[in-house]
């Protein structure tokens, strides 16, 4: 892998289980990293890990991504430290409690800000940088939850669906500039945060597997990627159920 040219890889939300795996893989193949997260201590651990793996630099930036000024500062810093952005992975997100959201407008809007608006804020700025440099990959972890609204998580789902639609448009716009836009939709992933759910059956993937899929998809300039692939067919079924039946289901 060392023979490949070194890339500058920016990972936003770098302390999430999947993003960590992606960071490790890019570091193992000796790329320069720029990692962004909210928690300094947790970010240092993954940055330290990457620094053992790569001979190139590992930069870190702490930001609250719902704050526009912090995002602006982050991009200033990125352009300061990196000559180009070859790969941008946006992986941050939060888990809103659907039931609480239903009773609380603030929580609902915060969930949409964290999972939707902040991503769009980042992408709006990043798109112009990559469009100008006429190269690079943008990859965003969205969700299969954004493909059909369900009573159990439509607040989160609508934020992700907004992101996916935005990505479609961005892909269309950036095509002529040679910038690739990848929408990654993972299924059930075995992470510390899902440790409380019994993992039975073949639907579960490890964060390492999903990380590998993301790295490969970016390398192959893919457009929409289900991780693992079979979620494409599961979602095909879920999105094909007629609404008059779907509305009666407790999904």
């Amino acid at each position: 892998m060392k023979t490949l040219p070194t890339k500058n890889v920016v990972i936003i939300g770098a302390t999430s289980a999947i993003a960590k795996q992606v960071a490790k893989k890019y570091a193992d193949s000796n790329n320069q990293l720029y990692l962004v997260a909210r928690n300094q201590e947790q970010l240092n651990i993954i940055a330290q890990d990457c620094q053992v793996r790569t001979d190139q630099g590992v930069n870190t930036f702490i930001a609250d991504l719902t704050d526009r000024t912090q995002i602006n500062k982050m991009f200033e810093d990125i352009q300061d430290k990196l000559s180009s952005i070859d790969v941008l992975l946006v992986a941050h997100g939060t888990l809103p409690d659907q039931k609480n959201c239903e009773q609380d407008v603030d929580q609902t809007l915060r969930a949409i800000a964290e999972n939707g608006l902040s991503v769009i804020n980042i992408l709006t700025i990043a798109a112009n940088i990559l469009e100008k440099q006429k190269s690079g990959n943008i990859a965003v972890i969205s969700s299969v939850a954004g493909m059909r609204g369900r009573q159990s998580n439509y607040v989160y789902g609508c934020a992700k669906s907004m992101v996916s639609t935005f990505l479609q448009g961005l892909r269309n716009r950036l095509h002529k500039s040679g910038v690739y836009v990848t929408d990654i939709k993972p299924g059930f992933v075995d992470t510390p945060m899902t440790a409380h759910i019994e993992k039975k059956g073949a639907l579960w993937a490890s964060s390492e597997q999903v990380g590998q899929i993301i790295v490969e998809s970016i390398q192959k300039n893919k457009q929409t990627v289900y991780a693992p692939f079979f979620w494409r067919y599961i979602m095909l079924i879920i999105t094909s159920v007629p609404e008059f039946i779907f509305k009666k289901l407790s999904l």
């Binding site: 939850a145 299924g187 059930f188 945060m193 759910i197």
Partner: peptide, 10 residues
């Protein structure tokens, strides 16, 4: 993680 959300929700 994003996966968490989907899992819990689905």
């Amino acid at each position: 993680t994003n996966s968490t959300m989907k899992t819990s929700s689905i």
